[in-house]
Design a protein around this nucleic acid. Structure first.
Length: 193
DNA sequence: CTTTTGATCGTCT
DNA sequence: GACGATCAAAAGC
């Protein structure tokens, strides 16, 4: 059984499913990941790294096990775990999770939320629960991200959300039936089949 | 229930 | 200067 962070160096879609059930802890809140998406840098037109190395994507080209945080739509932060060998520039977007510790802190960061299962539903909401922002870009996750014991739950796969390319690639993974997983909505920009 | 729209700015062309 | 790995509220049915 490979240790940290070697376990992250396999094919990014396999690594993504391994991250389901992992617990990420930051700023007094812990979230158990229930939904993730894989992005494979060089071969994936939907990946930020597809068009090469830029200041923003620099972290993706570095070693695995670090956090890649990007700013989205002028107001949100979203977080990825960098995977693969150095220079592969693959990453797994953290789309949803269940708050398993620090729920009061998570609630206060999110403001009024009707139901706790929605606290960390959606990548920007998950990042907000954990207090992740630009200062966390490149953060070494050793000790902060605890991988699950051999997964004892069913995994579903489907198309990725929000991307306008390669919509047919089933690189979104989630814990089957988990209430914290967002209901699927195809990108408005996705090309019609 | 589904669809539309406003908020808001870093990044890349 | 246009666009985007989003979200929540509003509007339409």
């Amino acid at each position: 059984m490979p240790g940290w962070p070697e376990v992250l160096t396999g094919p990014v879609d396999e690594v993504a499913s391994l991250l389901l059930g992992a617990v990420l802890r930051h700023s007094g809140v812990a979230v158990r990941l229930t939904e993730v998406e894989a992005y494979d840098g060089p071969d994936d037109p939907a990946s930020h790294a597809y068009r090469g190395r830029t200041p923003r994507t620099e972290v993706m080209f570095g070693p695995p096990g670090r956090l890649y945080v990007y700013f989205s739509y002028g107001m949100h932060w979203c977080a990825n775990v960098v995977t693969g060998p150095d220079d592969r520039a693959s990453a797994v977007l953290l789309r949803a999770g269940e708050v398993v510790d620090g729920i009061e802190a998570a609630r206060s960061r999110r403001g009024a939320v009707a139901n706790d299962v929605r606290l960390a539903r959606g990548p920007a909401n998950l990042a907000r629960c954990l207090g992740l922002d630009r200062t966390c870009n490149g953060l070494d996750l050793a000790g902060l991200l605890v991988l699950p014991d051999p997964p004892a739950f069913a995994v579903s796969t489907g198309p990725r959300v929000g991307v306008s390319h390669a919509v047919d690639v089933r690189w979104r993974f989630w814990c089957s039936g988990d209430p914290t997983v967002s209901t699927y909505r195809r990108s408005p920009r996705a090309v019609s089949p």
